[in-house]
Design a protein around this nucleic acid. Sequence first.
DNA 1: TTTATTTTGTACCATTTCGCATAAAATCCT
DNA 2: AGGATTTTATGCGAAATGGTACAAAATAAA
Lengths: 206, 206
Amino acid sequence: MVQNKEGTDVKRRGRPRAYDPAAALAQARDAFWRHGYSGTSLDEISAATGMNRPSLSAAFGDKRAIYLAALRDYWVAKFATMDRALDAERLQDALLGVYDASLSLYFTEADGARGCFVVGTAVTESVDDHEIREIAKAGFNTLDAKFADRFRLAQHAGEIAREADVEALALLATATLHTLAVRSRAGTPCEELRRLARKAVAMICR
Amino acid sequence: MVQNKEGTDVKRRGRPRAYDPAAALAQARDAFWRHGYSGTSLDEISAATGMNRPSLSAAFGDKRAIYLAALRDYWVAKFATMDRALDAERLQDALLGVYDASLSLYFTEADGARGCFVVGTAVTESVDDHEIREIAKAGFNTLDAKFADRFRLAQHAGEIAREADVEALALLATATLHTLAVRSRAGTPCEELRRLARKAVAMICR
DNA sequence: TTTATTTTGTACCATTTCGCATAAAATCCT
DNA sequence: AGGATTTTATGCGAAATGGTACAAAATAAA
């Protein structure tokens, strides 16, 4: 059933859509995720979503607009799962929760190792595309901020030293996420990266 | 003058080349570096190198072969500059030297912020291209190994604790390099990244 | 000087890619 | 039932892309 942005059902006038916009965008995102922005053709997106080209165009706009929508969506989902993981009681569990949740996103049954969508595809386009670059950069800064907040919390809870540099800790935490993103796409096995994450958490929280 | 791989001049039979193969490959690499593998056309490479298409084909092969040659070259150069930086007396200087040398490669006068060639372009192709993936992964493993060696040296010199986990330290050192690579291409200013590197070194060597 | 060899430069071809025009289909409103 | 509205489906066309054929040019060897 078609819904508006409040989630309530809406009576549309003409022929009903044959697709779910959110699901279609997720399929398009997966295609970009696998092949990169430049490496993905509209024909592939059309095949992945099951939508024909004019429907894609009407729903999302041109290729770049589809990608930008997928990119914004990715950050929203990423931040949501991150917040959930950071909610853990102990700092170590919170950090490891973020890394485990990320890894389960970086490895899939269907596509195998694909890494982080932003690191694997948006960063590549960031030299030529100003808007993609800004969205990527803002997202990374948000990661830093969320980690920093969590370290501050741990600091007040006495889990880490009162004189610890929470900003520096946050940078290392994001750096760990970045290395997981890069290495998973470059073929390092998931189990090895899980061990890497554990070691990194131990180093950061020492 | 044309040279063979030993560097000695060679008398070739027919019409002499109008280009220097090494310089041309560097130009092609810069084009790939900026736009990514899929985002770079042979016309752009032709323009960047000043070579016409048949000459490119004769010298390096097809588009993918040009890219692979550039990729292998990049690692060779990267490892060489890294070895030089790691030669520094004090551990902190060695690490910071690696990061500073990397940043000066990640930012250019001509193209601005472009990040690391491997992280910015090869990682993207790594899902679909087995050979690119293996070269990227092997390179990252070499980075880990070089950092680990340097930490072991520092350990023997008494700069870090005897019970320190040098492998874990190396992972964090490479993670820092990865975050510099990602963030520089995503538009974080060079000065900010230099501060990030300093903080990371302080955290790692604490 | 002539011949053999290698590279260059122009042009071309087949394919892919992107976007859109147009008509048919499916629904709502009167 | 009939018109209005929205989406779907087929297919087209211009441009870009990767690769190569072929003749002219430049050099070394004979």
